[in-house]
C-alpha cells in the first residue's frame, strides 16, 4: 500500500531523514515510534507531501508519488491527521469537518451523509458542531482532526501523535477510535511517542532513530514493553 525506500529529506541544507525505508501493507496498522528529533514528523511530512524527498521514493499502491503536491494527495486517498492543535480554530466544528471533504465538494449528498457518519462515530462532535473549534478540549480536537480526515474518504490515514498532551483516560478513547478505524478497513500509520498505546493497537512496529529505521518487529512476535524500553534507553542519545 505505502512504501518508503531510502528516503532522504530535510529542510534546506539540514538533513533529517538519512535513507529511511518502511512499508505499510493494505489494512495494516503500523506504528512508527521514536523520541523527539528522531525524524518522525519529517517522515510523515514526506509521506503527506509537505516535504519533498531529496532522494529515495515514496510510493502509494506501487505508484511513486514524490512529485504529487500535498494538495492532491488527499484525493488519492491519503489523509494526514495532524496533532490536535492543528485545526481551524476560528471555524465551527461542522465547518472544520466540511473542509475535510473540500476535494469532493460537488458531491453534496455524499458530504452530508459522511458528516452524519462522523457525528455517529463521535457524538461529542455533533453536540458541539456549532462551537468554534478553538474552544474544544484536547481530546475533542483530536476527534475533530480524525473526523476531518475521514470526511475525505481516505483509504490510508497517517496519524501524527494522536495521544500527545492528552489525559490517560482520553488516550484510551482515542486508541479505541483508532482500532475502530482499522475495522473500517482503513490502512493506518500511527506515529507515536507513547509506546504503551502503540503496542496496544498496532500489529507492526518501526522504531526510528537518527533519521533511519533502527528496529522493526511484528507486535505478536512478543515485543514487550521491556524489550522496547531497553532499546529506547540503550544509547538513544
Amino acid at each position: 500500500m505505502l512504501k518508503l525506500e531510502n528516503v532522504v529529506a530535510g529542510y534546506g541544507r539540514t538533513r533529517i531523514l538519512h535513507g529511511l525505508s518502511l512499508e505499510v501493507p493494505r489494512g495494516g496498522l503500523v506504528a512508527l515510534l521514536g523520541g523527539n528529533g528522531t525524524g518522525k514528523s519529517t517522515c510523515l511530512k514526506a509521506i503527506a507531501g509537505l516535504v519533498t524527498p531529496q532522494d529515495g521514493t515514496v510510493a502509494l499502491d506501487g505508484r511513486v508519488i514524490n512529485d504529487v503536491a500535498a494538495e492532491d494527495r488527499t484525493a488519492m486517498g491519503l489523509s494526514l491527521v495532524p496533532q490536535g492543535k492543528e485545526i481551524f480554530g476560528g471555524m465551527s466544528v461542522a465547518e472544520n469537518l466540511m473542509m475535510g471533504a473540500y476535494h469532493r465538494r460537488r458531491d453534496k449528498a455524499g458530504v452530508a451523509a459522511d458528516l452524519e457518519g462522523v457525528y455517529t462515530r463521535f457524538p461529542r462532535l455533533k453536540e458541539r458542531r456549532r462551537v468554534l473549534a478553538g474552544m474544544l478540549s484536547g481530546g475533542e480536537r483530536q476527534m475533530l482532526s480524525i473526523g476531518r480526515a475521514l470526511m475525505s474518504r481516505p483509504t490510508m490515514l497517517l496519524l501524527d501523535e494522536p495521544s500527545a498532551a492528552l489525559a490517560p483516560r482520553v488516550v484510551e478513547e482515542i486508541a479505541e477510535a483508532i482500532l475502530s478505524l482499522r475495522d473500517l478497513g482503513l490502512t493506518l500509520l500511527l506515529v507515536e511517542q507513547n509506546v504503551g498505546m502503540a503496542l496496544e493497537v498496532a500489529d507492526y512496529l518501526y522504531v526510528i532513530r537518527g533519521g533511519r529505521i533502527a528496529f522493526e518487529r511484528a507486535v505478536d512476535d512478543g515485543v514487550g514493553m521491556d524489550e522496547l524500553r531497553d532499546f529506547y534507553l540503550s544509547g538513544a542519545h
Binding site: 494538495e71 481551524f88 473540500y102
Partner: peptide
C-alpha cells in the same frame, strides 16, 4: 470556506486539498 481555512492554518488547508 477555503479562504478562511487558508487564513487560519495554511498547512491543514493544503492537507484538505485547498490550492
Amino acid at each position: 470556506r477555503s479562504l478562511r481555512a487558508m487564513a487560519q492554518h495554511e498547512t491543514v488547508a493544503r492537507l484538505c486539498g485547498v490550492k
